[in-house]
Write a protein that binds this DNA or RNA. Sequence first.
DNA 1: CGAAGAGTTGAAGGAGATCAATGGCGGTGG
DNA 2: CCACCGCCATTGATCTCCTTCAACTCTTCG
Lengths: 242, 242
Amino acid sequence: MDPHETLIRNLKEHSRLRSDDIAEICNFSFVTKELSPDQDFIRQGDQPKHAVLVVSGMVGRYHLLKGGRRQYLSFHMSGDLPDAQGLFIERMDHALCSIGPARVAFIPHKQILGAFERRPSLGIAIWRETLLDAAIFREAITNNSARSRPTRMAHLFCEVFYRARLSQLNKGNRCSIPLTLPQLGETLAMAIASVNRALQQLRSSGSMDFREGELIVLNWRELQRLGEFNPDYLHMKKPLTG
Amino acid sequence: MDPHETLIRNLKEHSRLRSDDIAEICNFSFVTKELSPDQDFIRQGDQPKHAVLVVSGMVGRYHLLKGGRRQYLSFHMSGDLPDAQGLFIERMDHALCSIGPARVAFIPHKQILGAFERRPSLGIAIWRETLLDAAIFREAITNNSARSRPTRMAHLFCEVFYRARLSQLNKGNRCSIPLTLPQLGETLAMAIASVNRALQQLRSSGSMDFREGELIVLNWRELQRLGEFNPDYLHMKKPLTG
DNA sequence: CGAAGAGTTGAAGGAGATCAATGGCGGTGG
DNA sequence: CCACCGCCATTGATCTCCTTCAACTCTTCG
């Protein structure tokens, strides 16, 4: 898939783009990079001069903790700009890595900032993109703080699947989430044993299955109920139904 | 304190403002509102037409959970724009309330958006403000997910005290944090009993005291160490020392 | 003056972390 | 080629920390 197209599609999910905005995006040049699983491409403390666009696969943001442990903060897929904040914040306070194999495109900050001057409405679309990120962070606070472990796991699966469907990255009721159980633990603040047991509880509910990095949604309504998932916080123009 | 001044001072902590930017801010008109403790002024689902500027006191953002329970997400003080996101996201996914008595100013979105057209650099300063919010949310994910309870409490106190000092809202080693223990619990994902016991543990460390909504920092280095607090994520132009 | 809520403390019970052991799979190197 | 290593996934047992519950005081507010 063409990187430009994927960004345009993504921004259109929440913002109106005029044809001039789209033309600006099409003028972006970039270099792409193929990433093997678990490969860092931006590290804490870096001062990036390029923005990253996810072209394919999944990437994650994480805080590095003492002892090499991680706290994953969010996951991003095709069309996302997972470090748009880097445009205005010099130094990274977290790292970015691939989750499973992925392809990313690097767009020079200068090009994007130049486009903002010509098309302020494009700047607002990307501003909105960063605001949606913040809404996802807020939900993650609540998810990890106020929900039971099986519930928070279901919520994460709901969020990823919902966003994948918005971008038509699902294959029917299936969706690639190349996370390992240890990584799920470092996302949801659970020990590995608890991750496994929560997963089995969700499996036994009959609403979903997850193995080998693939989520299968068998009963969306039920999974949504189990995860206490309400997609309003994703602020999409056209909420998905069913 | 004049609301305009307070906003200018706050933006200057992380962004350069030219005199034209400051002139635009001084042209903002607003109505102020006096709030008694625990008073909601924006609710989940609202579609605000005004941005809020905290003039004095403290305000908090929270998610409303089933059963009326809350998850507090962040706290804001004089000079903060706790719902700048409302400029571009129609519907609130969380609520805002006063923590203790507070005064807030409402500035019409139209005025702010108009100022952005004349002074794009002002827009970028406020964009950066929303990005700093996001960094605080990320840190809250890690705080509530990966740190022990006493540590996360110390971290919260460090963050609030550090930000208060940046804005000179502290009184020496004291700083007003008008949170009750139940509210601390709904912030840090702890039961009230645990809040109390963690607090006593911190007191007994000799690095701080907290009672009746006032934090007293007795040994900043030690408190910082106990909270595993590293202020880099606040991205200030001039980090405070000591 | 009674009710409600904050703060405090002790005891209980439970959810989840930790530890340990196993099987399976993929990669590497002798 | 296959033996070995490392990591993922799984499961059982133990143990600990934290939630829950209860009781009491104190303050505030109606």
